[in-house]
């Protein structure tokens, strides 16, 4: 289960309190009646589905109830960043990026996990 930081409550809370709400930063067309079928399919159905860094919306449905944005790595499922709705796409801090890469490459050994437990 994921531990998610809600930028409004400013707390790390369990995934059970949240709903995933799809890709972030998709702008609804200004005049949706005027767009072509291709543009509508693009807007309505096509999503990035990245392997790696993804920007997505979450909703703290069993908490404050508000939508917010998150940057997450879809390989490790690690949250790199969460920020409030309405803000432009936030760059992922370099340190976080390196931590995520290091985590992917590290192999979990018995010694390491035993070390953690102690």
């Amino acid at each position: 289960m994921l531990l998610i930081h809600c930028p409004y409550c400013e707390e790390d809370r369990s995934e059970l309190e949240f709903r995933w709400a799809g890709e972030a930063h998709i702008a609804r067309p200004e005049n949706i009646a005027a767009i072509s079928d291709e543009e509508f399919a693009e807007f309505f159905f096509l999503r990035n589905n990245e392997k790696g860094l993804t920007y997505e919306r979450w909703r703290h449905i069993h908490g404050c109830g508000r939508f917010f944005n998150a940057a997450r790595d879809t390989v490790s499922d690690r949250f790199l960043l969460t920020y409030k709705a309405g803000l432009p796409k936030q760059p992922v801090p370099v340190a976080e990026k390196f931590a995520a890469i290091a985590e992917e490459k590290s192999v979990e050994t018995w010694e390491q996990t035993e070390g953690d437990a102690r």
Partner: peptide
């Protein structure tokens, strides 16, 4: 699981 992922694992819940 509710979110996109390539981790070939999933939540315990």
């Amino acid at each position: 699981d509710q979110y996109n992922s390539y981790s070939q694992t999933g939540g315990l819940q």
